[in-house]
Design a protein around this nucleic acid. Structure first.
Length: 483
DNA sequence: CATGGCGTCAACA
DNA sequence: TGTTGACGCCATG
């Protein structure tokens, strides 16, 4: 990662999307200035990473300027600082006041590989969002035209679409107290509970070509499979994205979804193909896997039926499958639920458009750049880790956290997912070097599905309910079907 | 490094 | 269709 490279990237980004209406328009309810990455993207970013700064590496160079301002009174004056926390993507370190933030910024986010990589990621984030915005605007236009709604109006969407999510969010969660909430100093990460990964789906159809990444994050992070599937149903049906659940979980879901709670092998096959585009290919492989799982796991019970044999699920056995490490913290769960509301809309929108637009998001850059991909993953994991932390520090949904922040969190998680998609040849150990926060995820609590009830939130858990996407795209040599 | 979970391949009934 | 074993990958302790 070289400064020059970074600079180049930045140029590309800025040239492609000179202006951004988003940022300026919303001083109202949502504090966009704190939305580090998502909506405030371009404009803010430009402040932060101008070619000059990135070139010499002193990303913090610009900070002095801002430092001269009475930040105590204008905590939002710095795009990287808000609500008492550092808004550097993936950071969220608590900084009681602006001076401490600056100190933090200079010490933790100086020019190094990690920061540079993060900038790069941010650039791509911006670029991607803008591309998406354009697509969505187009789509909206088409939709309105189709519905004969002011079809004459050239600008169907007076307000930036990417704000929609923010707006939505703000509605459901009126702006939380802004900066006034410097979270406890002892809290390394913001009190938010970035939750476990959700089923994020940022995948673009192009992603299915990525190599195998085996982890089934949704499973691992206790994402309720039914929630994920329900939430991303259309996505899974159309994009060849391997669902982030194990075969066992999927089979169980298929069976439980049936009225009789039992299915024949063929019905299970049908469920797979009906629900997931991914399973419309390589049938021999996954069908074999399904059978293998049915036989292997005690939780699947074969029952002779009139019309042959059907498979049912032995919940008790299924529970036994994996030890539940997580001691569910009700508050955390609540937290997750509340944030879920914030993230879902954005998630859905992002998902849909990304999938449909086949935006090669990080597929090229990230994929070719281990650091980037690793970074994203690391960020994701870091966020996961934060959940735990939050779990122990803050019980209620963080009041100081604005919807936008939640969205931001969502976004970064999504980003992380993307990175995961991009078959980057980098292993955890190595990419963790680029991201300092240790990953500590105690997941695997209950089974995803299991968590349906109260736990289901996990899926949507916090801020990125949706996104986790760390799905594996295995086989894939998969080919050309969807392009 | 040992272990366990998972996915895949494959042989066989 | 169902069972079983082998093997490899990966995460975790």
């Amino acid at each position: 990662m070289i400064p020059a490279e970074l600079q180049q990237l930045w140029k590309e980004v800025t040239s492609a999307h000179p202006a951004e209406e988003t940022t300026g328009s919303s001083h109202s309810s949502v504090d966009l200035t704190t939305a580090t990455c998502v909506s405030s993207a371009p404009a803010k970013t430009s402040l932060i990473m101008n070619p000059h700064a990135s070139t010499n590496g002193q990303l913090s160079v610009h900070t002095p300027k801002r430092e001269s301002l009475p930040h105590e009174e204008h905590p939002h004056s710095h795009p990287l600082y808000g609500h008492g926390v550092c808004k550097w993507p993936g950071c969220e370190a608590v900084c009681e006041d602006f001076p401490s933030f600056l100190k933090h910024l200079n010490s933790e986010h100086a020019l190094d590989d990690r920061s540079t990589a993060q900038c790069r990621v941010q650039m791509q984030v911006v670029q991607q969002l803008e591309l998406q915005l354009a697509k969505d605007k187009e789509r909206l236009q088409a939709m309105m035209t189709h519905l004969h709604v002011k079809s004459t109006e050239p600008k169907a969407a007076p307000q930036p679409l990417n704000l929609v999510s923010s707006v939505t969010l703000s509605k459901s969660a009126p702006e939380a107290s802004p900066q006034s909430l410097p979270h406890t100093p002892t809290t390394p990460t913001a009190p938010l509970t970035p939750a476990t990964q959700g089923p994020s789906v940022i995948t673009t159809t192009s992603m299915h070509t990525v190599g195998p990444i085996r982890r089934r994050y949704s499973d691992k992070y206790n994402v309720p499979i039914s929630s994920d599937i329900a939430q991303n149903q259309e996505f899974y049906k159309n994009a060849e994205v391997r669902p982030p659940f194990t075969y066992a979980s999927l089979i169980r879901q298929a069976i439980l979804e049936s009225p009789e709670k039992q299915l024949t092998l063929n019905e299970i096959y049908n469920w797979f193909t009906r629900m997931f585009a991914y399973f419309r290919r390589n049938a021999a492989t996954w069908k074999n896997a399904v059978r293998h799982n049915l036989s292997l796991h005690k939780c699947f019970v074969r029952v002779e039926n009139v019309k042959g044999a059907v498979w049912t699920v032995d919940e008790v056995e299924f529970q036994k499958r994996r030890p539940q490490k997580i001691s569910g913290n009700p508050s955390l769960i609540k937290n997750m639920q509340s944030s879920h509301a914030y993230c879902t809309p954005l998630n859905a929108a992002l998902q849909a458009s990304m999938a449909e637009n086949s935006i090669p998001l990080y597929t090229t850059a990230s994929m070719g750049n281990p650091t980037l991909g690793g970074l994203a993953s690391a960020m994701r994991e870091e966020l996961n880790g934060a959940v735990e932390h939050a779990n122990s520090t803050e019980s209620d949904s963080s009041p100081g956290r604005s919807p936008v922040q939640a969205v931001t969190q969502c976004f970064w998680k999504r980003l992380a997912c993307l990175a995961a998609f991009s078959n980057f040849p980098m292993k955890r150990a190595s990419f963790m070097q680029h991201y300092r926060h240790p990953v500590h995820v105690k997941e695997e609590p209950l089974d995803p599905e299991e968590a349906e009830g109260p736990l289901s939130l996990v899926t949507t858990a916090n801020h990125s309910p949706d996104f986790d996407q760390d799905r594996d795209y295995e086989d894939e040599a998969v080919n050309e079907d969807m392009e």
